[in-house]
Design a protein around this nucleic acid. Sequence first.
RNA 1: GGAGGAAUACCCAAGUCCGGUUGAAGGGAUCGGUCUUGAAAACCGACAGGUCGAGAAAUCGGCGCAGGGGUUCGAAUCCCUUUUCCUCCGCCA
Length: 429
Amino acid sequence: MIDIKLIRENSDLVKENIKKKFQDEKLGLVDEVYEYDKTYREYKLEGDKLRAQRNELSNQIGKLMRDGKKDEAEKIKKEVSAINEKLDKLEVSEESLEHEIKTRMMVIPNIIDSSVPIGKDDSENVENEKFGEPKVPDYEIPYHAEIMESFNGWDKESAGRTSGNGFYYLMGDMARLHSAMLSYARDFMIDKGFTYCIPPFMIRSDVVTGVMSFAEMDAMMYKIEGEDLYLIGTSEHSMIGKFKDQLIKEDSLPITMTSYSPCFRKEVGAHGIEERGIYRVHQFEKQEMVVLCKPEDSMKWYEKMWQYTVELFRSLDIPVRTLECCSGDLADLKVKSCDVEAWSPRQKKYFEVGSCSNLGDAQARRLGIRVKGEKENYYLHTLNNTVLASSRAIIALLENNYQEDGSVLIPKALQPYMGGKTILKPIKK
RNA sequence: GGAGGAAUACCCAAGUCCGGUUGAAGGGAUCGGUCUUGAAAACCGACAGGUCGAGAAAUCGGCGCAGGGGUUCGAAUCCCUUUUCCUCCGCCA
């Protein structure tokens, strides 16, 4: 959510931004908000005056009653009743205007950073930088599901029976590898000075609408039946929600956290669950990094954060690149975002393993996360980035460390978490 | 899940039964000063947070005692409701 002052003072900028995001259908909202807001402030001023009058007169009644001047009090009571009648009507209008403004403000996209490339959709995202040599061995790399199968490492069929499409059992070494990578990612971030957190895996609807747009909510979130609770799609949701309605001391910034959680996603829309394997699934686990900082520091943190993920994947011998999200592909709350993509020697292209985002003050404004400033209070900036998402990371690791004989080398960094094993040998070919 | 109790400002806390100069006593903390070589203590003084609106500003006004709603001329105070915490009981890894 943007600051309504922007619409009051510079609505052209807001419109320009909507155009950059190719959401022209939302252009009208800006003028609507402008007009509603103008009327709302008129009504509020009038209402405030009436309320001030009422307060004044009620006080008088109090005094008269104490002095025992009942008749005079009764006279003023009638006056106040008349004011209240006017107010009742006015307040209904005030409230409905407030509502109209809010619903529009909730869908007007955040102002994107000037550095964001302009483009319609994900096909126009821009490669920023490559890290590590994207090698293609001269033997064929099997599909990751087949590799896992060769270790008796997964069971899709049973998961289909228990839970349906989009779920899986990880077994044996694959399950261990999964946990090992998450543990390694956790320790990696702890070493960077981030605070390790385990948050609630379910959150209320007011938190959900605070951290994401309605479009994202519909496509992602599982609702618990009969309760005001949603399964989180990422721990970012609970970690940002943690600060809802808080006034934070300036000297406690930046707040840098690395959180673990399972992630549940409906994956409705564009791609859906169509591929076999564990590329796109309803459930995975993720180590996340979340930063709350002063507005002027958020871009610095953005740069740092994606670099941490790159560093982590490079330490696992996985080549990566960063892909900058273009304006049209950027979610409405985001100021700037890039994906970290891992190399797939099988597909001979990169695929997404993480996403780093600067949300500016959008989440803070929606949730009321403010900082006590020296002169005045302000909304802080929030950022989040994937450290490591279990399912995608396993694919990247298996493909990039696959040997011709079907074994998989375990990168040095991971060996302590795998009981010292240096290689996994297939059980069946 | 059942039965009780509680929620007041940065923290502690009075006020709630019995509605009216209480937007809120008192204490702590904080800031300034006196004293001191310096500090502490003591004493003196200041300061009450937040948010919305009007205004060039000084300033003024609305809201605001966990959230929402109601009764009333008027609500921290009465009623309903939601949430959270505490105690006890039940269930449980």
